[in-house]
Design a protein around this nucleic acid. Sequence first.
DNA 1: CCAGTAAATGAATGGCGTTCATTTATATCC
DNA 2: GGATATAAATGAACGCCATTCATTTACTGG
Lengths: 227, 227
Amino acid sequence: MPAPTPAPSATSAGPVRRRAGRPTAAILDQDGITTAALELISSKGYDGLTMAALARSLGVAPSALYNHVASKDDVLLLVEDHLAAMVDVTAFGVEPWDAAVRRWAWSYRDVFSEHTPLIPVIAVLPVANAPKTLAMYEAVTAGFRDAGFPEEKIISAIVALEAFVFGAAYDVTAPDDIFDAGSLADRVPNFTAAVDRLALERHARPTDVAFSLGLEALITGFGALRG
Amino acid sequence: MPAPTPAPSATSAGPVRRRAGRPTAAILDQDGITTAALELISSKGYDGLTMAALARSLGVAPSALYNHVASKDDVLLLVEDHLAAMVDVTAFGVEPWDAAVRRWAWSYRDVFSEHTPLIPVIAVLPVANAPKTLAMYEAVTAGFRDAGFPEEKIISAIVALEAFVFGAAYDVTAPDDIFDAGSLADRVPNFTAAVDRLALERHARPTDVAFSLGLEALITGFGALRG
DNA sequence: CCAGTAAATGAATGGCGTTCATTTATATCC
DNA sequence: GGATATAAATGAACGCCATTCATTTACTGG
């Protein structure tokens, strides 16, 4: 009898109720799969994360994974939810609103800049199946509300900040010379001059300068919305 | 004798010089490949854009494509560069700076929200091989410079705006109920209340409200940097 | 007319995610 | 305590993918 396909979920809502006999000690579970996937990603990168490699690192046949996970995208969702729990939301309710947003956004960007292949998945998948991600949103929402944000604007502000964070996460992964115009440089003099001028500044990583610039503008702009 | 692999490029720098005899009328070229790819994307989506399908739509064997393109990523770069030319930069130098940025950013987001699978490619690939993309950057850079922007901040500001645009492009594609917490709703009361409150507003698409909110904050914040 | 060469072919390769009939091992019910 | 129900594991497929390469085709400059 074929095993039923599990519903897509980053964390199952506790153990499934048991009707009749079943093995006590299953080799696989979602936590183990998540851990193995994270180890594989950190050692071989996302190109190395294949269902076959994941199964091999767990000492199991690839098809066995499908008893615990509906698809490879479901594995990515498990990983995403694990990472969401690593985003720093502890400043909300402790530090002032602007400092809390700053800490959250920097940490959010740093976590996902190492995991940009997840972004297309996150952006499209409902949060209902990602409890830790949901917990992050809850903390941030409460922080905005307690800071006097009008309730109807909170989600929009978070969505805008998140969009900026995801885009900035990609930017971190870009090669240093991405803006080198090469042989076309003389066709784009203003752009080339601006790129060269920025290169003279030796303060911080360009990607961090850009992130700071945008984030501070967003914090200032959104801060004015508070009642 | 095997044909040489073409260098990755969104548009070759004119026809390759001819040493000896060669056919005058090649069936394929980069323009034709780009056009066929765009048609395929618009009819079948990015899942339907395979090298085999692309070749079939051009009446050619898949391997023939590799005489004109180095890889599938190279095809995506061709498509990206075509789309970059559709982004509206005409307001720079004509309308005031803030209005020009507004037009550019909205148009940039709208174009790429239909082509989010390109974003991971764009974010990593050097602009040297994408002349139309480079032309867009040139127009925007000149607009910032003429508006009195300090030269060392121009690229950072553009990068920040672009990050926001790319993230927002993903947001456009998200399902309407992406923030439905489902059975976990009572665990995240603040978040659920804010989501419900936003749903009461019936003015515009939520994704457009969030984009406008973020973009106006960025424009205001960056506008203050002008000399 | 011959030599040179870009462009097209078609077969082959290796990898991928996923499916499914089957087997294994156990916990509960009678 | 034996029969039963069932979740979990297996291993062999499947279809699709991007890409490679030896070979053929068709043209043109010398």
